[in-house]
C-alpha cells in the first residue's frame, strides 16, 4: 500500500509523547510528518529546535508556501493554523480559533486528507479537548489510516478517547509502540 505523509495532533502532554515517537524513528524514515501541537499563542518556536536536536530527521517550523519534503518533520507555528495544499505545499492562516485552538488539529487533518487521500496516516495523541476528531472522520472518508494513542498510555486521555469514540480509528496503540508501527507501515 504505502503512505505519502503522516499528520499528528497533540495537545496537553504532547511534547513528551512527540519526543517518544520522533526519537523512535530511524534515520532512513523518509515519510514526511506534519504536526500540530497546541501551544500558548505567546510561546516561541522552541519545540522544533528541541525535537530537532534529538532526531536524525530534519525538524522545523512550517513556513507558508513551503514544499513538503521527504525525511522532514513540519510543526505548526504558535498562533497560526497549518494547512496542506493539494500540490503538497504548506500554508498558514490566522483564521478564528477552532476548539479554542490555533493551530487547530482539525484544520491540518481535513486539508491533508483532501491532498493525500488514502495515502495519509493520521495520529491523535494525548490532550484535554476534542480537537482532531472531525479531522479523523475526514481522513477515513478518504480511506486514509488512523491511529489513536491508547488513553491509558496518554498523559491526558480526553483527546484520544474522543477520537476513538468517533468509531473511525483503525488502530489504538500504547505510546511506546507507535514509532515501531509507523516503521512497519512506511518502510
Amino acid at each position: 500500500m504505502g503512505f505519502d505523509a503522516i499528520v499528528i495532533g497533540s495537545s496537553a502532554g504532547g511534547l513528551n509523547a512527540l519526543k517518544t515517537i520522533i526519537t523512535g524513528l530511524p534515520h532512513n524514515f523518509s515519510t514526511p510528518i506534519i504536526l500540530t501541537q497546541h501551544l500558548s499563542p505567546h510561546s516561541d518556536s522552541y519545540i522544533a529546535e528541541f525535537l530537532n536536536q534529538l532526531s536524525h530527521l530534519t525538524i522545523k517550523e512550517a513556513d507558508g508556501g513551503e514544499k513538503i519534503m521527504p525525511s522532514h518533520v513540519y510543526i505548526a507555528p504558535p498562533n497560526f493554523h497549518l494547512l496542506v495544499e493539494e500540490d503538497f505545499t504548506l500554508n498558514l492562516t490566522v483564521d478564528e480559533k477552532i476548539n479554542y485552538s490555533r493551530p487547530s488539529i482539525d484544520i491540518l487533518f481535513e486539508t491533508a486528507a483532501i491532498a493525500y487521500k488514502n495515502k495519509l496516516i493520521g495520529i491523535i495523541l494525548t490532550g484535554a479537548n476534542n480537537d482532531g476528531s472531525n479531522g479523523i472522520i475526514q481522513i477515513k472518508t478518504f480511506d486514509g489510516f488512523t491511529i489513536a494513542q491508547s488513553p491509558e498510555s496518554a498523559e491526558v486521555a480526553v483527546m484520544p478517547r474522543s477520537a476513538i469514540e468517533t468509531g473511525h480509528i483503525d488502530k489504538i496503540l500504547p505510546l511506546q509502540e507507535i514509532a515501531a508501527f509507523l516503521v512497519s507501515l512506511c518502510c
Binding site: 494547512l83 496542506v84 484544520i107 483532501i114
Partner: peptide, 8 residues
C-alpha cells in the same frame, strides 16, 4: 488565494 483555505 491559497486553495486549501478557500476550499475549506
Amino acid at each position: 488565494y491559497n486553495k486549501a483555505h478557500v476550499k475549506r
